[in-house]
Write a protein that binds this DNA or RNA. Structure first.
Lengths: 237, 237
DNA sequence: AAACGCGATTGACCCAGATCAATTTTGGCC
DNA sequence: GGCCAAAATTGATCTGGGTCAATCGCGTTT
């Protein structure tokens, strides 16, 4: 939201010991290519609430999330907001056809990204089809997630939305940390509401209701799934 | 919905005079490649209401829509349906990571597709990065549309949804037929409702309301935009 | 430790859109 | 044309979730 004051890592870094080496776009590259790739990206830090890029901005860079969580959202002229997704480490951002980002991205808590200037990155891809294939895979995965989310937004009740959100978020955490019934929620209630197409009051009331029924416990910075089976039944997959 | 009885074109065809030659995946191929490509696809016809593929099906083919309109949708176990998009000529269907289609596709009216068996198509792509790049472009375009649709589903009122739908549909027609204030609507009111996350009654009432206000006229098989500016104001882009 | 600020929760009430229930219109089909 | 079934429209009523308005909890500042 506030003007972005970024911190650029002064010293070099090595892709080979990058935390997302195995899951991000770069997982498609050979060690030799990786060394060349290393020179294209620079690590950039954003602190909580900073905007990494805005919807209407002309795309000058692509981003590979290394650490932290970002909210990806679109605004209507009157200020209504829809969060179209959350980006986690390994996610690749910035692909578009129009030449402009078609959503905005803010850091939720501290975030580190690997930033690539558009032109050199485009040239690098040019003769590396396996990198293109990897980007394509990520796009197809996101498309599938987007369609699932359309079902949630268009056809699910508030209870189902919240339950599905908790399970979905746990599922995504699973890849990074291990499996757990404790779901950390770094985003605000307002973020959750804007992701689920609800109001903050409804999200809050639904959490409280789930807690009263013994399905979850609201803990500091997250939710504990006391009765995962109950929550799964509510999400009605 | 009913069991699919497809009609396969018995005689050969030529990509070079295909209606979607310029806009589909194949637009990325050279004339020489096109001749080879020709042998991979076969034209298949579906009649109104037939299912081209289902959500849970294992993907054995990719499809290039040549003619007609398809509804792409997901069902919840209890029968609630969300239409995640409509496919028009030039659209490419079947890409996924899971090995299964993650939505179903029905013909709305008569449909012709160019069907490719998965394996040979995959092999053909292998050493043709420009085809892969084209597929990637189409995926990115769809992703952008999907995000726009999430905003509509999550944050817009019924009036806004219907108005935005009419304008969006006119926009898509524009590419195929010329510009026009007459918007043909081949899909049913139920389809529109399931696309917009509304009920059929609300869609019908909203059309009637727009007509009473002089913004549109409900005509046979579609809508005429009497006052496009009014409809645009309602859609509140 | 009092005062502040901000996110989260809770309560009271309201309304857009869903649901339920008839019609009416349309489109084959003999 | 007349008959039937499906789609669309319209009306009456209901309700899930929104809106408005306190209040609470808690970390931060002074």
């Amino acid at each position: 939201m506030k003007p972005s004051v970024v911190t650029i890592e002064p010293n070099g870094h090595f892709c080979s010991d990058c935390g997302v080496r195995g899951s991000a776009v770069c997982s498609s590259l050979e060690p030799a290519e990786l060394r060349e790739f290393e020179h294209l990206g620079r690590r950039v830090h954003f602190s909580s609430g900073e905007t990494v890029f805005s919807e209407e901005d002309i795309t000058t860079s692509f981003y590979n999330v290394l650490d932290g969580v970002m909210r990806l959202y679109k605004l209507l002229p009157d200020g209504r907001r829809q969060i179209v997704g959350f980006a986690l480490p390994g996610d690749f951002l910035g692909m578009n056809l129009s030449g402009r980002h078609n959503f905005s991205a803010d850091a939720i808590g501290a975030v580190t990204v690997c930033q690539f200037a558009k032109a050199p990155f485009g040239r690098f891809i040019e003769d590396r089809p396996q990198l293109l294939r990897r980007i394509n895979e990520l796009a197809i995965r996101e498309l599938s997630q987007a369609r699932d989310h359309m079902v949630l937004l268009g056809r699910r009740s508030a209870d189902e939305k919240v339950a599905a959100f908790l399970l979905g978020w746990r599922e995504r955490q699973l890849a990074h940390k291990g499996p757990s019934d404790t779901v950390p929620l770094p985003m605000s209630r307002q973020d959750i509401a804007d992701y689920l197409g609800l109001t903050i009051e409804t999200v809050s009331r639904t959490f409280t209701k789930l807690e009263r029924h013994g399905a979850i416990e609201i803990i500091h910075g997250g939710i504990s799934l006391l009765d995962p089976a109950r929550v799964e039944a509510l999400a009605a997959a």
